[in-house]
Amino acid sequence: MTSGFFMTYTSVSEYYKKIFGRKIYKITLDAGCTCPNRDGTKAVGGCIFCSASGSGDFAAERNFSISEQIEKAKKLVANKIKNIDESKSNYIAYFQNFTNTYGDENSLIKKYREALENPQIAGIAIGTRPDCVGQSILEKIHDLTKEQFMDGNTVGRKYFSIELGLQTSNEKSAGYIRRHYSNEDYIDAVKRIKEINPDIHIVTHIIFGLPGEDENVMLETVRFALKTGTDGLKLQVLNVLKGTDLAKDYEEGKFKVLEMDEYFSILKKALSIIPSDIVMHRLTGDGAKNILIEPQWIANKRKVMNDLKKFLSD
């Protein structure tokens, strides 16, 4: 476990190493989904902060097959990380863009399976909204967890994770960001996932720095997710991206983004209340630089992580 001042937390790299016994890389895929916040079912335009790609700005183009996207994503990893042993399962396939349990269920399961059939894919992570985890798609995912796939040079079951975009437990903030689902939807989704298969790893996304939220509200969201029963957390500072309605509000001076020291201070307090068995999948985000307006300090991820490590150890 990673230690810092008086808290200890489990990093995602440590978590993967414990499960798989080796380094695991996460690659982003596009399943071709949309969102009820965009197609008119609940709203149009999406959440106020969401980019045109549905928060999947690092995924391959959706016109490629899942297998083709995997190969392209692997090359991106290889360009950054040398000496990867591609004879082993080194990747989690992350279905990120938009809402990946929303759409034709048989088509979605086919795409999940296509990823899992690749012997270098150790498992999948499915990004979605709590109000789109219907019982039917959840049962189909559960059935898939019981199937056997080639895993490196052996045959066995693979890893499954469902990532839920909570962002905030404050209903006023939820209205502002146009989330269009309730906290009860999130509670219900976590409950049903755990009931059908407790081995599915649940990750909850939380944003710090939403307009109108102070430190206490942000920490209350963390407490809410922990109380509900999440297995992991993704924490990040609010990103203002080009082309979003949030960008319009920012340009009109309706709010300010968190400075790095402000974010680090809140994050440090959050880590102090998070149990050590909760997996920290992300401590800060790094939005696509070509569409990032603010905060610019997140653009240099390596520097941010080095500064954060120093801050947490002080």
Rank of each mutant, 00 (worst) to 15 (best):
I202K: 07
Q148Y: 14
I24S: 03
F98Q: 06
I278T: 11
I196C: 08
Y250R: 04
S67H: 12
I266K: 09
N197E: 07
Y250A: 07
K191N: 14
I266G: 03
G209M: 05
S265T: 03
N306F: 11
L271R: 06
R192P: 00
M7W: 04
T154M: 09
K80S: 09
D199T: 15
I126D: 00
L116P: 08
I273T: 09
Q135R: 11
R178D: 04
K194A: 08
D261F: 07
G46R: 04
K23Y: 05
I291W: 09
A299H: 07
S182G: 03
K23E: 15
E259S: 14
G209K: 08
P119L: 10
E262S: 08
E114H: 01
A189P: 01
S53M: 11
M1L: 06
G127A: 14
A52Y: 03
K310Q: 02
E251K: 14
L312I: 14
L164F: 01
N306C: 11
K289T: 05
C33F: 08
F20W: 03
K140G: 03
D185S: 13
A247E: 13
K23H: 10
E251T: 10
E114N: 10
G209T: 10
S161G: 12
T34Y: 09
V44H: 06
K18L: 01
K310M: 06
V257E: 12
S265Q: 10
T2P: 02
N170W: 08
D185E: 10
D277S: 12
A115K: 05
L76P: 07
Y263M: 07
F224S: 11
K17G: 10
I124T: 08
S55E: 14
A60Y: 08
I162F: 05
D286A: 13
N79M: 13
A60V: 00
V12E: 13
I293D: 01
A52G: 11
L166R: 02
N106P: 06
T8M: 00
K17Q: 15
I293H: 01
M7C: 05
E105N: 15
Q167K: 14
K256P: 15
R22Y: 08
E86C: 11
I266H: 05
H205T: 06
A247V: 12
I206V: 13
K256Y: 15
A299E: 07
S3M: 03
D57P: 11
N63I: 01
V133S: 04
P198W: 06
Y91M: 08
K111N: 07
R302Q: 08
